[in-house]
């Protein structure tokens, strides 16, 4: 799968679910793309690099979300 196609799939998938949740496990992203985790990781890393996804961590578990989404986003940014 081309990067652009995978990227769009993730953005569409995450936007669709935004009403119910804003943070996603890595496995959720692999499933949206329909590829194996190793391949999904390359796409996800690039999307983080481009600022399209951001990490969220409780300390023990990591999740991904789109910047600016979710309840905590406003509270956690500097402005």
């Amino acid at each position: 799968m081309e990067y652009e196609e995978a990227k769009q799939k993730i953005l569409d998938g995450l936007t669709k679910k935004l009403k119910s949740k804003s943070k996603f496990y890595f496995n959720d992203l692999s499933k949206i793309m329909g590829v194996k985790p190793r391949e999904a990781k390359k796409v996800v890393n690039k999307m983080v690099e481009e600022g399209l996804l951001e990490y969220w961590s409780s300390g023990s578990t990591s999740m991904y979300g789109m910047p600016g989404t979710g309840k905590q986003a406003a509270a956690e940014h500097e402005d």
Partner: peptide, 18 residues
């Protein structure tokens, strides 16, 4: 304390706990 956060250093998804 709130639970977790979205802070980190650029490109790293670990090493910082908000």
């Amino acid at each position: 304390w709130k639970h977790g956060g979205i802070v980190g250093v650029f490109g790293y998804g670990g090493g910082v706990i908000g």
